[in-house]
Every structure is written in structure tokens, then in C-alpha cells.
Design a protein around this nucleic acid. Structure first.
Lengths: 225, 225
DNA sequence: GCAAAGCTTGATCATTTGGTCAATGTTGTT
DNA sequence: AACAACATTGACCAAATGATCAAGCTTTGC
């Protein structure tokens, strides 16, 4: 392959809505699902460069050329996985303030994030890796969609604080604290398990982690829960 | 190279004390320093597989074979970088309780961790990546050295809590919270900068981040500072 | 001044790996 | 049945990349 063509293909691509790969048959749909699952698993562990298309194909019980039939390039596949992950990542945040009082809104969000960390640690790790790489792919999402959401939440949080409903803090740091603490249980689960011998899968451990984050975010001694 | 020999070389190696690479001349020493710096930079961004020896060599202003003269293999280099990083990572934690009252001990540690996040974000990211990969290399350090340290700290924290000097919490979660929140500012700096337009390099932002972590860990409204 | 030890490099290998392609199989539709 | 669209694969390619090596260059110690 001529170097120029390759460079063209490798040109940074933004995350855009559809561009769905092939798939018409029901078998095809199922394959795509399996590929995306496998890809998430491998990418989140090995990173983009470390992931081998071959390994993903095997995990999805497909031959390599067959995988490449559904996703033309490794990068296309990576994009698809990222896009899918972003949806589940952004949705709960967007839904945060819907109703209720500040306390339950925050508690619900934290609980949801922790459940997410417990049930989809790979997605969390993939996100972390992408950010650590400098977010070359999802930069636009961060600066666009996510920033708008955050700006909105900041307004809400300030309102709550002004009304004395939650402790006064810098709203940005508050948000980062929730993200940092909850995602930590997914991203560093290996370390946590080595040090404590426990996992979020253990309900008692989940509960204590939840309480810990609650008290950090909402202040001391919420007897609730 | 025969596949068997390569497999042998790639066999998992533990982190052991010395095994210093070459270097006797002062020029050699300087080169090794430059190589390690460059390697940290590249590894922390691209991961082990994504990092190209060539790129590291260039960054260190050396030819690729010259770099390989100092570190026989890419893996040797990765090990050396990890080992060096672990030292600066573990030391402050080990020093945490030396004197003073609980509050200043924790405050000092948090401040130190935040400074570390500000000044050596690459080291933090490398650590994060290694853990997310499943810690294949530093597993033994986690289970050995680090676990012992943590166990000791947990005892101290419990004592402080029993004496009513700091709020009662699960000590493990407290430690994780400090790590998660402080390292978040290094590992996710890209996201933070995109969302807030600010960096820990900004003293005001550093101070507010510090305050945020303080109040999360030590409870509300420490009027100090 | 000179040998020995350390350092540097251009050229070159061997392997890995993302990606292609032609040929073949399978499924669904009329 | 037969045609078309979709799916699958073995064989293969070209580029990237970790690693080697012989030959030359510097520095150090005596």
C-alpha cells in the first residue's frame, strides 16, 4: 500500500453520528455485536496499538478477514467501539438533575456511576485510555457535547449551593470528584482487589464504597441508606 | 530470531532491584537519563505496544541502535522506567504519618500528591496504564511492598478515627479516595483542561482542587488555608 | 601516546500485523 | 430452481518495527 494512501486513511476522524458498517442479515447484526464486545475487551486492555485485529476476531469467533469485512479498518472498529461506549457514558450524566431534591439526584447519579463501574469496567478503562492518549478521537465530544452538559450541571449545582441545599464547593471540582472516585473502582480494580481482596461485585464492598463517595461529595454522616 | 528464544525473552519478569544497564561514562549516564525521560513520555502516552523505540530514541536525541545499546530490549527499557516511577510514587505514601497531627499529615500527603500530579503527570499516567493492563509487571510490588504499606496506614487511620481525630470511614476507601481524586488531575488533565480551560499549573486552580480534596477527605469546612 | 573500554551508527534481518483479493459458501427472494 | 446479495476464508502482500552486527569513533587510564 502506498504510504500516501495510508496517511490519508489515518487522517484524524471525528466521531460522527451514523456511518454504520455493513450488516443487513440477522447473522450480520449478531456478528457486529460480538465484534464490538470483543473489541471493547481487547482495546480496553491493550490500548489501540496493542490490540491486534486477529485477537479481536478470535475472541468474536470470526476469522480476521471476516472481521475486516464488517469493519474496514482497525481504526473504524475503534471508532465504533468508542462511539458506543460514549453513549452509555454520557447518558446518565445528562439525566442527572431530572427531579427530586439535590441529595437524591446526586446519590442516584453516584450510585449509577458505581454500578457502571462494577458492570462495565472495560468501558471505563477504554475511556480513561483515550483521555490519557490526549483524546485524539473524542476531543470534539469533550469540547462540544460534554462541555455543554457540564456547563448546565454547574449552573444547577450553583443554584443548589446558593439555596443551601448542598455544601458550597467549586462545582467543577465536585463533578470531577464524583467521576474520579467512581471510575477509580473500575480503572484500578486490579489494584483495589490486590490490596483489599474485594470487588464491587461483593455487595458489602459496593455499599461501603458508595457510602464513602456519598460522604465525600455530600459531606459527613448522611444517615440515609 | 527463532520464535522460542523470543518467547523466552518475553517471559514475564518481576521488578527486581538493580540490574542497571551499562553506563560507566558520564556521557553514558546522561544518555540513560535522557532515554528514561523520553521513554516515560512516550510510554505514558502510547502505552507499551504503542510506543516505538524509534520515537523514544529520537526524543532522546539518539539513534535507535544507540538506545538499544543501553537497554537491550524495549521491555528492559519499560521495566527501568516503571521501576524509577514506582520509587517516586511509593515514597511519599510511606512517609505519610511521620509526625504531627492527623490533619496535617493527611493535608501534607494530599498536597504532595497534587503537586506530583501537577509536576509528573506522565508518571501518574504510566502507573494508571500499567494497572489497567492488569499490572502484569508490577503485580508483585502491589501485592508485596504496597500492600504492606497500606496495611500499616490502615492501622494508623483506624487509631486516629477511634480517637475521634478524623471522621470515621472505611480506611481503605479513604486511601483510594485520596489516590483517585489527586491522580485524576494528572490522568484526566486533558479532559479537565477542555472542560474548565484551566490546569494545575494555575495556582488558583491548584488551590481550589486542593481545597476540594481536603473537604472530601477531612469533612466539611476546614477553615484552615 | 596508546591500548582498552566504552560509545555510535548505517545497513540489514526477521517477524509481526493490518489489510487485500479471488474464490467459495450461504441465505433469502421471486 | 435460480439469481442476487450477503458472508466467509486461505493465501498473500507491504509496511512497520524490534533487534543485530560489523565497523568506526571517543574517552579514559596508564
Amino acid at each position: 500500500m502506498p504510504a500516501a494512501a495510508k496517511a490519508m486513511r489515518r487522517k484524524r476522524r471525528e466521531i460522527s453520528p451514523a456511518k454504520r458498517q455493513r450488516a443487513t442479515t440477522q447473522a450480520g447484526e449478531a456478528n457486529i455485536e460480538r465484534i464490538l464486545d470483543a473489541a471493547l475487551s481487547v482495546f480496553s486492555r491493550e490500548g489501540f496499538s496493542g490490540a491486534r485485529v486477529d485477537a479481536i476476531a478470535n475472541l468474536a469467533r470470526l476469522s480476521k478477514p471476516n472481521l475486516l469485512y464488517y469493519f474496514r479498518t482497525k481504526e473504524d472498529l475503534y471508532l465504533a467501539v468508542l462511539r458506543r461506549m460514549l453513549d452509555t457514558w454520557l447518558a446518565p450524566f445528562d439525566r442527572m438533575d431530572i427531579g427530586d431534591d439535590p441529595h437524591s439526584a446526586l446519590q442516584n447519579y453516584i450510585t449509577m456511576k458505581l454500578m457502571h463501574a462494577r458492570d462495565f469496567p472495560e468501558a471505563s478503562r477504554l475511556f480513561a485510555m483515550e483521555i490519557m492518549r490526549g483524546a485524539p478521537i473524542i476531543e470534539s465530544v469533550l469540547a462540544g457535547e460534554l462541555k455543554e452538559m457540564v456547563d448546565r450541571k454547574v449552573v444547577v449545582l450553583r443554584r443548589w449551593m446558593a439555596a443551601g441545599l448542598i455544601p458550597k464547593r467549586d462545582p467543577h471540582h465536585l463533578i470531577f470528584m464524583i467521576w474520579a472516585t467512581t471510575q477509580h473502582y473500575a480503572d484500578f480494580s486490579k489494584q483495589i482487589e490486590t490490596l483489599t481482596g474485594r470487588t464491587l461485585a461483593d455487595p458489602a464492598f459496593f455499599a461501603s464504597a458508595r457510602r464513602s463517595v456519598f460522604s465525600a461529595v455530600l459531606g459527613e454522616a448522611k444517615k440515609a441508606d
